[in-house]
């Protein structure tokens, strides 16, 4: 079923909306949640919560790209879940690795005193990612939005893991300089 038709089901408050979403995007959202959450049952809860949140957001919202809309919700739910868990302990996995890598981008490498609005930071990142060359952008988004492991990114982009690693390193350096220039310090 096309995205527009599924969105219309939500707007019509049809029982079929969730079923159609599950069929088309269940696997996609589970893969996002699975890469972030440490336990399968947590990932499954995130996916279920995604359908619940989507139901509450539509109507009002009429997303043109349902995959990105749903994926963003799943991603947020999963990250919030592990943030709560992280307060207790950190135990590895791709998300922890990604967090460690992104810490390099922070000027000074540690939490600053300055308070930054989440939306301003989102806008800054949106601008930064939009300006990246295509292959760099693909690698960066696959790593830090989709949280894919390096080997998987290399396979999908048909480049070596070594080249993937180097490319991400250079992009993170660029992001660090960009954030400093934008005053995030």
């Amino acid at each position: 079923m096309e995205d527009a038709a599924i969105v219309e089901l939500y707007w019509q408050r049809s029982d079929q909306a969730i079923a159609e979403t599950e069929q088309k995007y269940g696997r996609y959202c589970r893969s996002i949640a699975g890469r972030i959450c440490r336990r399968a049952e947590d990932a499954e809860e995130c996916v279920s919560d995604t359908w619940f949140r989507a139901w509450n957001l539509m109507p009002d919202k009429r997303p043109s790209r349902l995959s990105v809309f749903l994926g963003t919700i799943t991603r947020s739910l999963a990250l919030d879940r592990i943030k709560a868990e992280t307060r207790q302990k950190r135990g590895g996995g791709e998300t922890d690795l990604a967090l460690d890598e992104l810490t390099e981008c922070l000027p000074g490498g540690e939490d600053p005193a300055r308070v930054v609005e989440d939306r301003e930071l989102e806008a800054a990142l949106r601008h930064f990612v939009a300006g990246l060359p295509e292959e760099e952008k693909r690698a960066f988004v696959l790593r830090y939005w989709h949280l894919l492991p390096l080997e998987e990114i290399a396979r999908r982009l048909r480049i070596s893991p070594g080249k993937t690693k180097s490319m991400l390193f250079r992009t993170r350096k660029k992001l660090r300089i960009y954030l400093q220039k934008e005053g995030y310090c």
Partner: peptide, 27 residues
């Protein structure tokens, strides 16, 4: 600002950039 905020702020990137990366997906 911490790395977690950065990771979460990636939610704000453009749809077309998420889709561009996804176009590398085999499926």
């Amino acid at each position: 600002m911490n790395a977690f905020q950065l990771l979460r702020a990636m939610n704000g990137i453009r749809e077309e950039d998420v889709l561009l990366a996804e176009s590398a997906y085999p499926e």
